[in-house]
């Protein structure tokens, strides 16, 4: 199959956690001739959540694909067809940013808005509420791609100031990847 003949679809599944969710979903994909191109799945607060990019040589409608999963009644699904693989190779320097502190509204939003204004791309984001019920701690870990021409002085101090104004702690470290 040539790459240009492939059709790509983005599928998401959310299901109250139980045994066999991955087995059930992947069986339908396998039986219908889909390839799993890229995926990320994790357990979020008792709900198993899957995001899959799949490909097929057939041109399905979004409804066709949803219907293939109609037997899996406890799983919510959404389907979106994509143009090409929409695969882009991002450039920039990777940083891991951890922001954490007592839980309050707007932590993710404040950080994300600053990053958007700076054209810094978020490529991975995880948040959790941890700690005791009466004293919850909010933890956010981001991986971002900073354009190569940015010096750290141009964004690190401002991001730290945003965190300070929210009363949260922040840690920023560069992730270097080496090919051996």
């Amino acid at each position: 199959m040539k790459d240009s003949d492939k059709k790509y679809y983005a599928l998401t599944f959310v299901c109250k956690d139980r045994y066999g969710i991955v087995a059930d979903v992947s069986k339908v994909l396998y039986d219908n001739g889909f390839n799993l191109e890229d995926s990320s799945s994790t357990l979020l607060r008792g709900f198993f959540s899957m995001i899959l990019i799949v490909s097929s040589s057939n041109n399905y409608s979004e409804d066709d694909i949803s219907a293939m999963f109609s037997d899996l009644e406890d799983i919510s699904i959404s389907v979106r067809s994509m143009n090409g693989s929409d695969a882009t190779f991002a450039n920039g320097n990777s940083y891991i940013v951890s922001v954490y502190g007592s839980d309050k509204p707007g932590i993710v939003h404040s950080v994300a808005e600053y990053l958007r204004d700076k054209n810094i791309n978020i490529i991975d984001l995880q948040t959790k509420v941890a700690g005791k019920e009466k004293k919850p701690i909010y933890i956010m870990v981001l991986e971002i791609l900073v354009p190569e021409n940015y010096r750290e002085e141009e964004w690190v101090p401002e991001l730290k100031e945003i965190s300070e104004n929210m009363g949260t702690d922040i840690h920023i470290r560069q992730i270097e990847t080496y090919e051996f």
């Binding site: 956690d17 008792g46 891991i96 951890s98 959790k128 933890i139 870990v141």
Partner: peptide, 20 residues
């Protein structure tokens, strides 16, 4: 290979918590 030693493709920071 390094693939044999990967801990997590994502940032491996959260301790997994049981919700059930």
């Amino acid at each position: 290979l390094f693939v044999d030693r990967i801990i997590s493709k994502r940032t491996d920071l959260f301790r997994r918590k049981k919700y059930r």
